[in-house]
Design a protein around this nucleic acid. Structure first.
Length: 861
DNA sequence: CTCTCCCT
């Protein structure tokens, strides 16, 4: 076994030489090179290692265990002797162990316990091109450990093809060694869609084509479970020969179904596996000769603004596409159909975005706080954690009591970090402990940290989102003890493998809590019970919502209508119809997809108003709500108690803040306009006359137009409506009075002179001027009353001629003029002819300027 | 038209 030649053997010598001269190195070699299993064993003989151990990081538990087992076999041993492994809840190492294959989270926890990594001679980062958050963090922490305590410690970054230069830089210009891989050739066929053809149809077309043209099993990459279900249905509908078996493969599929998809096809059968990116690296499907790649993948994107994550469907990177293609060439030459064009291929991003740039950084921020670092820039990163997400993470940690105002980790934060869960869940468990509810909190934390215990049927039959029923089911599952769990339990379809795992995780967390928990500086939680095994656990399931609220206070939600909720963080959330949860007045949404205006709730639980008041009093804020009720035309004043955007209680306010009331009243007037104000005809006339003066002398006369008045309510109206509440109160004000007070007394006198209310005409009548159009003040008078008036009367100190509406004896408009002199001279004679015909009894002199004006038929003799 | 993957 040991002697089989692998491509990596060609560069092992160079690697050994490099690491005897340098502390850091980078090894780039494609899949199939053998680096993962050969390199640790080779380094075991390096003189610099002495009797120290080698740590090798693997991104997945399964890989860590199988790589350790493989290396052990090479030495003719079992895992746990010279070569061992550590993954969560499963450790196989002994005093003899020199190589420890560990998962990434384990390394972080080892570093937190002993930052100097005493006894470790080298740390190897395998599959580093995947750029997981943990690998990035692990490397940053190791680099600082090396710099501060362990100058001689070796760091080796191993990776498939990637840009080595940036890594070399942060590793103090580490040398780069390149090796060959060993893979069978895979032919690439570009197989784009027809126009707007749906992905599923394109996929089915490609599958049919490939079934015809090539032998062997087929692996089809699709972005998600939805596409896989639809493609599966269409494939079956398209009529497949009986020898062809279709198997879906994705993470949420029950363990048994996953194993069935991976297993080699029985002879005489052809297998088509429809898979998400899970088959890109995590799972290996045996016997694949044909790969069909949709070129899409679903990725999580965290939004610092909402504190939630949404899934986006994006084009794969070229690195991913090449990795997918490589799955066809593991055992023999193969072929890969790419469902896109060669032009599109050139535009693919070279590699996927590193997790640290798009993930929720709360776990990272807690690790750094526990490490003693507040600002990530103190460490060396390939990509610095982005500032907005990091800031949001620190705010959350502060809210949860994990870090102090200064940013330093608190005792509570240390306990959270030690639990090895997401900070939200760790906080929930610690608070629950204070209430005697640690056990169910651990159950909840385990469920939320793992895949769903309930089988998600997808499609039309929506999986119930209620976590409390899962919690009850889990209690029942525990009573099964060692026996095999059934597929249906507590009225729900379950994945027995995940259930067992969740129970193990929960028990593990509870044990960790109990051993670490006694004699610590605990979180200052309201302690309801001193005795932990209390009556509280009896009704534990009813506390589900409360516990979730500890973890997700920003996702406490209030029902707007059946199934629709508003969350404390301001976002909308939706529980699909038919579920009991949809009818709850309040809920806590633990898991949801931050999509559109209404995020779908996948997991959550109801919470009662009483529970909110009892357990979340510390985050309930009281404020005055004062607003204009448009229907009732009155100001409403309430005292409201809220958690973020969620309304907890609203009571009519006894002593409303008069300032807020005034603002609400003015808001109401702004919305409702002048019709809410008691304008009289006289007020309107005054307004017109003042507007008239403003037009000619804006520097000295205020703008009292409707629009301007509405825009400046605070200035002119506020002092007169202070303490008022509704429309009938407003009827008490006198607008004309208020307007006239806008100008000083002397100016008011001037107004009467400059913009007279009335003019006396030659007949002796006093005629009221019409100022409704401030551009053109109008004098409307019967023609006969004006005989003898030589010029157009002018106002505003002679600056503005009035517009004269000349009327017939019956007050019908006859002529409009601003030039009376000209009218007498020309138009009068035409008008006279006409009027004389219609009003023969009236007085129509030939010389109107000399004639006597009259308001009767003829002048009185 | 209910969700990608992984880990202390």
């Amino acid at each position: 076994m040991t002697n089989i030649n692998l491509p990596i053997d060609d560069v092992l010598g160079e690697l050994m030489d490099t690491l005897s001269d340098h502390t850091n190195a980078i090894l780039i070699a494609p899949p199939g090179s053998g680096k993962t299993t050969r390199v640790p064993l080779a380094l075991l003989h390096a003189s610099w290692l002495g009797d120290r151990r080698i740590l090798m990081l693997e991104p997945r538990r399964l890989a860590a265990k199988s790589v350790a087992a493989y290396m052990a076999r090479q030495l003719g041993e079992q895992a746990g002797e010279t070569v061992g492994y550590r993954v969560k809840m499963d450790t196989r190492v002994s005093k003899r162990t020199r190589i420890e294959v560990v998962t990434e989270g384990v390394l972080t926890s080892m570093l937190q316990q002993d930052p100097s990594l005493d006894g470790v001679g080298a740390v190897l980062f395998d599959e580093f091109h995947e750029r997981s958050l943990h690998a990035d963090l692990g490397l940053a922490l190791c680099l600082q450990a090396q710099q501060l305590f362990r100058e001689e410690m070796r760091l080796l970054v191993m990776s498939a093809t990637m840009d080595a230069e940036p890594v070399s830089q942060i590793l103090n210009h580490a040398p780069v060694i390149r090796g060959e891989g060993r893979m069978y050739p895979v032919e690439t066929v570009y197989y784009p869609g027809h126009g707007a053809e749906r992905l599923e149809d394109r996929t089915v077309r490609a599958v049919k084509q490939a079934l015809q043209d090539h032998d062997g099993d087929m692996l089809v990459f699709l972005p998600g479970a939805g596409e896989i279900r639809r493609a599966e249905r269409k494939l079956r509908e398209s009529g497949l020969s009986p020898g062809v078996r279709v198997a879906p493969l994705y993470g949420n599929l029950p363990q048994a179904a996953q194993e069935a998809a991976i297993a080699p096809a029985v002879s005489g059968q052809r297998k088509i596996v429809l898979s998400t990116s899970i088959a890109e690296t995590s799972l290996t499907v045996e016997g694949v000769r044909v790969v069909i790649d949709s070129g899409l993948m679903r990725v999580p994107r965290f939004s610092p603004r909402t504190g939630m994550t949404r899934l986006e469907t994006v084009p794969v990177s070229r690195a991913s596409a090449d990795q997918r293609r490589g799955r066809a060439g593991r055992t023999a030459p193969g072929v890969c159909y790419r469902l896109w064009t060669e032009q599109e291929d050139r535009r693919l991003p070279p590699r996927s975005t590193p997790e640290v740039l798009e993930a929720d950084l709360a776990p990272l921020a807690l690790e750094l706080a526990a490490w003693g670092v507040g600002d990530p820039a103190e460490l060396a990163w390939l990509d610095l954690p982005p500032v907005p997400a990091y800031r949001q993470a620190r705010e959350l940690l502060h809210l949860l009591g994990a870090i102090a105002e200064t940013g330093a980790v608190t005792p509570h934060g240390r306990r959270m970090a030690a639990l090895g869960m997401h900070p939200r869940l760790a906080h929930m468990v610690l608070r629950a402990e204070g209430l005697g509810l640690a056990r169910i909190a651990c159950d909840l934390a385990a469920m939320l940290g793992e895949r769903d215990v309930a089988v998600r049927t997808g499609g039309r039959a929506k999986t119930d989102a209620d976590l409390s029923s899962r919690l009850a089911m889990l209690q029942e599952a525990r009573t099964w003890r060692g026996a095999d769990l059934p597929d249906t339990l507590g009225g729900m379809e379950i994945d027995p493998a995940i259930c067992r795992r969740v129970i193990a995780e929960a028990d593990h967390a509870l044990a960790a809590l109990r051993t670490e928990g006694s004699g610590r500086g605990a979180f200052e939680a309201p302690r309801e019970e001193d005795n932990e095994t209390s009556a509280a656990e009896v009704s534990a399931v009813e506390m589900c919502g409360v516990l979730l609220g500890f973890a997700y206070p920003d996702r406490i939600g209030q029902q707007r209508s059946i199934g629709k909720f508003t969350l404390a963080n301001g976002r909308g959330a939706e529980v699909s119809e038919g579920q009991q949860l949809a009818a709850e007045p309040y809920l806590v949404a633990a898991e949801l997809d931050d999509q559109g205006t209404e995020s779908k709730v996948y997991l959550g639980a109801g919470i009662s108003l009483e529970q909110i008041n009892r357990y979340f009093a510390d985050i309930i804020r009281e404020e005055q709500s004062v607003y204009w009720d448009r229907e009732a035309q009155t100001v409403r004043t309430f005292t409201v108690r809220k958690i973020g955007a969620v309304l907890i209680q609203e009571t009519p306010s006894q002593s409303p803040d008069p300032e807020l009331m005034l603002q609400a009243l003015l808001d109401g007037i702004r919305q409702g306009g002048h019709k809410l104000l008691p304008w009289t005809k006289g007020d309107r006339l005054l307004q017109s006359r003042m507007s008239f003066m403003h037009k000619y002398d804006p520097a000295n006369w205020p703008d009292v137009s409707d629009e301007s008045l509405l825009n400046h309510l605070e200035d002119w109206l506020a002092p007169h409506v202070y303490g008022m509440r509704n429309r009938s109160d407003l009827q008490k004000i006198q607008i004309g009075h208020i307007l006239s007070e806008l100008i000083p007394w002397e100016q008011r006198q001037e107004l009467d002179r400059l913009v007279p209310l009335q003019l006396t005409v030659p007949s002796g009548s006093r005629i009221t001027l019409d100022y409704s159009d401030p551009e053109q003040p109008v004098l409307a008078a019967r023609l006969q009353e004006l005989f003898g008036m030589k010029e157009t009367p002018r106002i505003a100190g002679g600056r503005v001629p009035v517009t004269i509406h000349l009327l017939s004896p019956a007050r019908r408009p006859v002529q409009v003029t601003q030039d009376l002199a000209s009218f007498w001279e020309h138009a009068y004679f035409e008008v006279k002819k006409d009027l004389k015909g219609r009003y023969p009894k009236h007085y129509w002199p030939d010389n109107p300027l000399e004639a006597e004006a009259t308001n009767r038929t003829k002048p009185r003799k």
